[in-house]
Nucleic acid binder design. Structure first.
Lengths: 149, 149
DNA sequence: CCTGAATAGTAATTCAAA
DNA sequence: TTTGAATTACTATTCAGG
């Protein structure tokens, strides 16, 4: 498993599970047959800028990075939660799949948001293709998008 | 000094100083003649829900809770709509002009928002000068700011 | 680069006290 | 309830090796 995939998985896990400490990540990955140590998770958390937030239940939990929430990002978030199916990158391209009929709206929002990594964007019925400035941008962009889910 | 006052002070400190670890809080309070230990700060942080965010400079810093940052971006948006005049970049600098008397407030908000692109910020009466990490950051930062209008 | 093992460095909690 | 001292628990980094 490559670092990139693991990062994606961590983002998913931190949202669907309650992760109270780094060892929880390690355990979750072990359950999936992925061998990784706390040291690596610590580094991943740093790169992904995950934060440990004191929770209302008296404990702590890791969360996605506190991002600036514009109106756009709230709309994006809502739409992503409703209609997001999958995301993938290939070179400088990012492909987002949505439920049928939602891709155009998503594409419009993404265009409005004017992400600096983005060079262009074209939407169909259930697919948005984003062309980024380069491969690195595509990865960063993907992370941004995933964080809306 | 009562807990409540200390909490208020911590909120202020976390915004105006770079707090990398809990001991930094302890030191800052000692400078002000307030005796307190790391244990207490840890409890305070929990109650205030401050978070330790991996920073872009490779370190970490404590920050206000994400929800509070959200409030800040709303304020920023309101102020921008009210007082924004122009924005321009030159190399790693971004210059924002506002209606007279509004720049200081804007600068404070921008500083509080702790944008990763930003290195420093100085405000006058109708001008905010932001020094970014590099030219690219300045451009990205400019886009972010414009998106508030 | 990326990682794990070991370890150093921080942070959270326990326990006793006021 | 709130706190500090001590301790435990957790997280970050160093160092060596893919």
């Amino acid at each position: 498993m490559k670092k990139k995939e693991r990062h994606q998985l961590l983002r998913k896990l931190v949202q669907q599970d309650v992760i109270r400490k780094q060892e929880d990540f390690v355990d979750k990955l072990h359950e999936r047959g992925i061998e990784v140590t706390q040291a690596t998770i610590s580094r991943d958390i740093k790169e992904l800028q995950l934060v440990k937030v004191p929770a209302q239940d008296g404990g702590y939990r890791y969360n996605l990075p506190p991002e600036m929430n514009y109106d756009i990002s709230k709309k994006l978030s809502r739409l992503m939660r409703d209609a997001f199916v999958s995301i993938d990158t290939q070179r400088e391209f990012v492909l987002i799949r949505t439920l049928p009929g939602n891709a155009f709206a998503l594409g419009s929002l993404i265009e409005t948001a004017k992400y600096s990594e983005m060079f262009g964007c074209v939407s169909g019925d259930d697919t948005v293709l984003i062309i980024c400035r380069d491969e690195e941008s595509a990865e960063r962009f993907q992370r941004r998008i995933i964080s809306f889910i």
